[in-house]
C-alpha cells in the first residue's frame, strides 16, 4: 500500500518573479498512511511548498509528482464564503466537482456530523467562533474523501484548547482513514502529536535540515502529549529548529 507515493517532490526549487528564493532543492515523499509534518521558521517557504504540492503553482526547478486528484487543502484561513450557510459551504467542494445535489447533500451532512456542527448547519460563518469556522473548513475538505490532505497551519489562529481538540480529531480521522498528509505548523508539539514523520526546514530559502520519524501508534490519546518519549522527541525537533533559526 505504501509502494507508490501519493506525492513526490524531487529537488524542488522555487524562485518568484521578484527574485525571492523560497525553496531550495526540497525532496520529499508522502504515501497513503503517512502523515508528514513540516516545521520551519516563518517565511521559509512552507505555504509555497503546499501550493506547489497542490498544483496551485509551478516550481521553478525540480518536479512535483502527484498520483491523485483527490486533494484536500485546509488553509490557514477557513476560507468560507460568508454568504453561504455552513451546509452550503460544506457542499461547495462537491458542488464545484459537479456532483448531483442529493449526493452532495448527503456528503455534506455526513461531514458536518463528523465535525459535530449539526446544530449550526443553517448558520452563516459570521455567527460562528474561530474554532467552529475551522471545523466547517475541515468538513468541506472531508466531503470528497481525499487521498491526500494538505494543511497550512490550519489551527494557528486558534486558542490552545480548540487547537488541541481539533488536533485530536485530525489524528482520529487519520487513524481511521489512513490518507496521506502534509501538515505545516509552527507548533512542534502539534507536529509530533499528529505525524508519522517531522521535517524541519531551514530559513529562506527553505531546505530540509531535519527529518524525524515519529514512532507512536494510532489512535493517539491526548495524554500522549505528556509522555516522556514524546517530550524527548519534541525537544530534539525544537533544538533542530532553533539551531536553524539562530
Amino acid at each position: 500500500m505504501t509502494a507508490e507515493p501519493l506525492l513526490r517532490l524531487a529537488e524542488v526549487g522555487m524562485r518568484f518573479a521578484d527574485g525571492t528564493a523560497a525553496l531550495h532543492e526540497v525532496d520529499l515523499e508522502v504515501s497513503a498512511g503517512q502523515f508528514l509534518a513540516v516545521v520551519g521558521p516563518s517565511g521559509c517557504g512552507k505555504s509555497t511548498l503546499l501550493r506547489l504540492a497542490a498544483g496551485l503553482a509551478k516550481p521553478s526547478s525540480g518536479a512535483v509528482l502527484r498520483r491523485t486528484d483527490e486533494v484536500a487543502y485546509v488553509f490557514q484561513d477557513p476560507a468560507l464564503l460568508p454568504w453561504r450557510t455552513v451546509r452550503a459551504n460544506v457542499e461547495l467542494a462537491a458542488e464545484l466537482r459537479g456532483l448531483p445535489k442529493p449526493e452532495r447533500r448527503r456528503l455534506a451532512a455526513q461531514a458536518i456530523e463528523l465535525v459535530g456542527l449539526e446544530q449550526f448547519a443553517g448558520h452563516r460563518p459570521g455567527a460562528l467562533s474561530g474554532g467552529m469556522r475551522m471545523r466547517v473548513s475541515l468538513a468541506r475538505s472531508l466531503t470528497l474523501r481525499p487521498e491526500l490532505f494538505l494543511f497550512d497551519e490550519p489551527f494557528g489562529a486558534l486558542d490552545e484548547i480548540s487547537r488541541e481538540r481539533l488536533g485530536d480529531e485530525v489524528a482520529k480521522l487519520f487513524g481511521a482513514r489512513g490518507f496521506g498528509a502534509v501538515f505545516v505548523t509552527h507548533s512542534v508539539t502539534e507536529a509530533v502529536f499528529l505525524s508519522t514523520r517531522v521535517i524541519v526546514l531551514s530559513g529562506r530559502p527553505g531546505r530540509v535540515v531535519g527529518d524525524f520519524p515519529v514512532p507512536f501508534d494510532y489512535p493517539r490519546p491526548p495524554e500522549l502529549r505528556f509522555d516522556e518519549r514524546f517530550a524527548h522527541l519534541a525537544g530534539a525537533v525544537s533544538a533542530c529548529l532553533r539551531g536553524e533559526a539562530a
Binding site: L56, V71, A79, L96, R97
Partner: peptide, 17 residues
C-alpha cells in the same frame, strides 16, 4: 480573496462558475 480563488481552482471551477 486569493484563498477563495485557490479553493475554486483546486476543485476545478471554470471562469463562469
Amino acid at each position: 480573496e486569493r484563498v477563495h480563488h485557490d479553493l475554486f481552482t483546486l476543485y476545478g471551477a471554470g471562469r463562469l462558475t
